[in-house]
Structure formats: structure tokens, C-alpha cells
Computed example of a mutant assay.
Amino acid sequence: MPRVIFHKNGQTFEDEIKTGSNLVVRAGIKQFPYPHLSYECGMGKCARCACEVLAGAEHLPPPNWKEKKQLGDRLEQGYRLACQLWLEHDIELRQEPTA
């Protein structure tokens, strides 16, 4: 089971999730890391779920066209859309507070 470490607002949240889980789906059904993960559409259209990948990026698939369109240069800075990631391995993410 993948271990997720999630940083937001100076706090760190840690938990294990079922292999193949998506954090936005889990947040939507009130599971980890609810209510801390910011998200909106869940379909890669709004980029509200953008997170910086601090560890585990080597296990993620290449960015899809939605991530390329929404994140642009932020991809090179290590950002990904949480709604587009189905996690198979440990990951550490940081999400900036939203206004």
C-alpha cells in the first residue's frame, strides 16, 4: 500500500492508501487527505489540485495532455495534477494554500 505524505499550510499529513487510489477521488468521498487537499473539477480542467511532487516522481507516468495544458512550465518545476494520478508507489506532495 502506497504511503502518502502531504504538506499544506505548514502541516504534514501522512497515511497509507489502497494501491491504485486517486487522492481527489478519496477526498471527494471524505477519505485521506480530506479536507486538506484543494480540488474542484476532478477532471484536469481547473488545476486547483496542482501539487509539487517532493518525492516519488520517478514512479509516476509521464504527464498527460491535460497536465501539459494546465500546468505548462510548472511541470518542469515538479508540479502534477493530483486528479490525474492513480498512485501505485509512495509519494510526497506539497500543495500551496489557495486564496
Rank of each mutant, 00 (worst) to 15 (best):
Q77A: 04
Y79H: 05
F13V: 04
Q84Y: 03
P63C: 06
L81Y: 03
H89E: 04
K45D: 09
W65C: 06
R80Y: 01
R80G: 08
E14V: 13
E58V: 12
M43N: 14
P2Q: 11
V25M: 12
D90M: 04
P61E: 14
L71T: 04
I5V: 15
V4N: 06
A99S: 12
Y79N: 01
G28L: 05
G44P: 05
F13L: 10
K69T: 11
D15N: 07
C49Y: 12
Q95E: 00
L93D: 04
Y39P: 11
N9H: 15
Q70D: 07
I17H: 09
P2S: 11
P62T: 12
P33W: 00
M43Y: 05
G10V: 09
Y34T: 10
K69Q: 14
L75A: 04
M43R: 15
P61D: 13
Q31A: 14
R48N: 13
P35L: 01
K66I: 02
Y79Q: 02
F32R: 10
L93Y: 06
H59K: 11
T19M: 15
P97G: 14
K30R: 15
Q31K: 15
H59T: 10
A55N: 15
D15K: 01
R26G: 02
T98N: 09
K45Q: 09
C49S: 11
M43Q: 14
D73L: 11
R94Y: 07
D73P: 10
N9C: 03
Q95N: 09
I29F: 14
W65F: 11
D90L: 06
G72N: 10
S38M: 07
H7W: 06
I91A: 01
K68A: 06
K18M: 13
R26H: 07
N22A: 05
T12E: 13
F6R: 07
E16W: 05
C49N: 08
L75V: 00
Y39W: 14
Y34A: 11
W86D: 13
Q70W: 04
F13D: 07
H59V: 05
